[in-house]
Amino acid sequence: MLKTLEPQVAQILENTDLEVDIRLKKVCDLLKKSVPYYNWVGFYFKNGDKQELKLGPYAGEPTDHTIIPFGKGICGQVAVSNENFVVPDVAAQDNYIACSLTVKSEIVIPLFLNGENIGQIDIDSNTPDPFTEEDERFLEFVNQKVAQIL
């Protein structure tokens, strides 16, 4: 199912008539709308030279977590590890920052530009343990396409 979204993601991101943030927001909206267990979809980006992430475009409930220090929470850990992080059960994570009581699981995939981790795509799900390797590969594809327009 996720594979079928790839052409739509590419089409959105390649639309140079729209600003980058608008394209990213449209991708978030598409993923949230199309994948039943993607309940919150957003991008975080490195905040200048600071050791923190800043919230970018997203789709879902508003979040208080607009700035996340490196190392804090799942997103902050990915900023340091440069590796995908799939959390089947957020309640079992010591270093988890709760965005919403309804969130049961999370997946975070780093976004690389010229080999540097400049951000990530973050997805929260209200479904326990829904993420598979297919989600990881699909979100890596999304990030590769995003990197091409940054």
Rank of each mutant, 00 (worst) to 15 (best):
L5C: 07
L5R: 09
L5K: 05
L5P: 07
L13G: 08
E19H: 12
E19T: 13
D21P: 15
I22G: 08
R23D: 06
K26W: 06
K26M: 14
K26F: 08
K26H: 13
C28E: 06
C28G: 15
C28Q: 13
K33F: 15
K33P: 01
S34P: 02
Y38T: 04
N39A: 07
N39F: 06
F43M: 11
F45E: 10
K46I: 15
N47K: 15
Q51W: 12
E52Q: 14
L53Y: 15
L55R: 12
G56V: 03
E61D: 13
P62S: 12
P62E: 09
D64N: 15
H65R: 02
I67P: 02
F70Q: 05
G71I: 08
K72V: 10
I74W: 00
C75S: 08
Q77C: 01
A79I: 01
A79F: 00
S81I: 01
N82K: 14
N82E: 09
N84D: 14
N84E: 13
F85S: 07
V86L: 07
V87P: 01
P88R: 03
D89V: 06
V90M: 01
Y96M: 10
A98I: 11
A98F: 08
T102F: 10
T102K: 15
V103C: 12
I107P: 00
F112Q: 02
N114D: 14
N114Q: 10
I121P: 08
N126E: 11
T127Y: 00
P128F: 00
P130I: 08
P130N: 07
F131N: 03
F131P: 01
E133F: 07
E134T: 08
D135N: 07
F138S: 06
V142A: 06
L150D: 05
